[in-house]
Design a protein around this nucleic acid. Sequence first.
DNA 1: ACCTGAACACCGTTCAAGT
DNA 2: ACCTGAACACCGTTCAAGT
Lengths: 218, 218
Amino acid sequence: MSAPVSQRTRGRLSRERVATAALELADADGLEALSMRTLADRLGVGTMTLYGYYRNKDELLDAVVDAAMEDGEGGAPPLEGDWREQLRGLVLKARRNLLQHPSLVELRVRRPVLRPEALRFSETALGILRGAGLDVREATAAFRLLFTYTFGFAALSPAESTEEDRRAALAALAALPPNEYPALTEAREEASMAMGGEEVFEYGLERILDGLEVRLGR
Amino acid sequence: MSAPVSQRTRGRLSRERVATAALELADADGLEALSMRTLADRLGVGTMTLYGYYRNKDELLDAVVDAAMEDGEGGAPPLEGDWREQLRGLVLKARRNLLQHPSLVELRVRRPVLRPEALRFSETALGILRGAGLDVREATAAFRLLFTYTFGFAALSPAESTEEDRRAALAALAALPPNEYPALTEAREEASMAMGGEEVFEYGLERILDGLEVRLGR
DNA sequence: ACCTGAACACCGTTCAAGT
DNA sequence: ACCTGAACACCGTTCAAGT
């Protein structure tokens, strides 16, 4: 903060500064709000200046993924316990990172992410599953299940569903003919409330871990 | 086909014809290819003509969801067997529909879908889970798990991954330092091949059903 | 009544020009 | 060397005008 960095670097850009600003913009206002024009404006430069740092928007988005993943690395304690506790810890850590950087999910839905930083999650999960006794093929499929659930939940169950969203969901459910939709009618409170709750996420995670335990033993 | 429909209706539009054409366009070329201009062109009318049938693009997209869901209704045999077989049958039916209409997934990721047609899946799943003995709250959470997995897999594991995609994935995995990514290096063939395969999907589904069975009994 | 071109406020990106 | 305005080919949508 108060380090003797040259004042002259204040306004200067770098690939890193551009990527960080892009990540902040995307996380705050959603990926659709991240346009080259808006980002350049926010950085106080002309739009085309950004193309001096990144060849195109796709390349910038890759850097945004990297920035978000690096952010998720630090701080967490190493994984402990048996395979189940380790997997739970890993998934919950990934979920925390996805909640902090919703743009990661949007980016991943648009195209597969193959950046080394982003593959750390895969590596760790695969390692735990192999260590627990699954062969390469089954460990890969089991990883896919955990990955799909974690990212899918973030993509499909909006964490910050506004009161308005919830009311709209409840209204839609209340408008259904009860004789055609008896189960949904009965469950409409729960269905409209708990869409993105942590409790619901963790319930599903434990069922998945139960399912893996059936194959792996304790 | 050869019914005596007035020739004059040939070029005439209707809400339904517009929605059907939009669905075809989105399924064939992806949701991002569905623009009001492109759609109007394909229908041989001026762009603004479409606004005579739908107030705006959002309203048209709702109609696209409806058209895709109706398409998934017919034909399938009623669900049979115990709760596990019924859930498996329901999920696989939903998956088939999502594969046929990839735009459904893209639309669902963008915003919650609350159309009655789209809620039939929820209704049926909830009914099976309640019938199996779960209370309202737990049945809702279990449904969320099944829904997240089914839609998440479709959103995150491209079914039609081209040879080129697979090669890009393999290349990215091969470029990782093996000492830092031992498990991914060992599994890189499986990881790059099986991303979206039906086998992988069904493996995960069976683990989820196993996990529910732990709570439900046979 | 039904349809639509022009226009506006947005995109990403190319190109040629500024310093 | 570094930066950037104008321009092009796209968006969704409003508005005023055509038949």
